[in-house]
Simulated scan of single mutants.
Amino acid sequence: MQNVCKRRNSASFIQEGSSTMILGLDPLHQNFSETLPTEMSVRIFSELDLRSLCQASLTCKQWNGIIEGSDLLWRSHCLTVLAICRREMDGDRLDGYSWKVTLVRNYRKGCVKRRWLKGRYSNIHSSDKIPPNSMCPLDLETWGEILEAELER
């Protein structure tokens, strides 16, 4: 038995038994994640930076499902923060947190530490002049690294 239907006026689908053939595919209206295996979609999403990945997850339910469901996508971004917050991230992983949760928990800490180490706040002369987004709970060793960097300047 053969069924023909239209979808968004962009493609015709012919279904025979359990297989489906796509005819007349319009690339402007085709969502790649609908036609590619999930592994290929994950590979495409892995090329995105962190901000773009988060924005892509808001595009549609299907993209969100792929992005949220793939720990590997978050792992690569998490490893870039690992160099900054190694102890915290190792602890989170040992506690069983997913790569995404580990990244979310430590990303801000990594940004704050990086800005302090680069000397962004070196010329601040009083505590009331410290920007509100420049402080967060960091361990004693991290604040020691920041203090050493400040003393070297």
Rank of each mutant, 00 (worst) to 15 (best):
R120G: 08
S18Y: 06
W143K: 15
R86A: 11
A149K: 13
I22P: 07
S52A: 13
H29F: 15
S18P: 05
E145G: 07
S57A: 08
E150S: 08
L48Y: 02
I66F: 02
T102W: 05
I66S: 03
L73K: 05
W116P: 06
T59N: 02
F32M: 13
S57C: 08
L72P: 01
T142G: 05
D128I: 14
E16L: 13
W74A: 01
A149H: 04
H29E: 14
I14N: 08
N64G: 15
W74R: 01
T35R: 10
R86Y: 11
C60H: 03
R105G: 00
I130P: 00
D92N: 07
F45D: 01
F13Q: 10
W99S: 06
S10P: 04
T102P: 03
P137Y: 12
L50E: 05
D71R: 07
C111G: 12
T142H: 02
G24L: 12
N3D: 13
L140C: 11
D95G: 08
W99C: 06
T35G: 07
D71H: 05
A56V: 02
G144Y: 11
E47W: 14
R120E: 15
L23Y: 08
R8D: 14
L103D: 00
R43H: 14
L138D: 05
R43C: 13
T80R: 12
W63A: 02
C85G: 09
E88M: 12
P37Q: 10
Q2L: 14
C5P: 00
E152H: 12
I84F: 10
R87T: 14
L151W: 11
R43V: 11
W99D: 03
L103Q: 02
K61Q: 09
H29L: 15
A56C: 04
R105T: 02
F45G: 01
N31C: 12
M1Y: 11
T80N: 09
C111D: 14
Y97E: 08
G144L: 10
G119M: 04
T142N: 06
D139V: 06
E148W: 09
G17W: 02
W143S: 15
Q30C: 15
L117Y: 07
S52Y: 06
D139F: 07
I67H: 00
S76N: 11
R8N: 14
L53Q: 01
L73S: 02
Q55R: 15
L117D: 06
S46W: 03
H77R: 01
L79W: 09
M89D: 01
R8W: 09
W143F: 14
A83H: 10
G119C: 00
L138C: 07
A83F: 08
T80L: 12
E34D: 15
C54L: 07
F13V: 15
P131I: 09
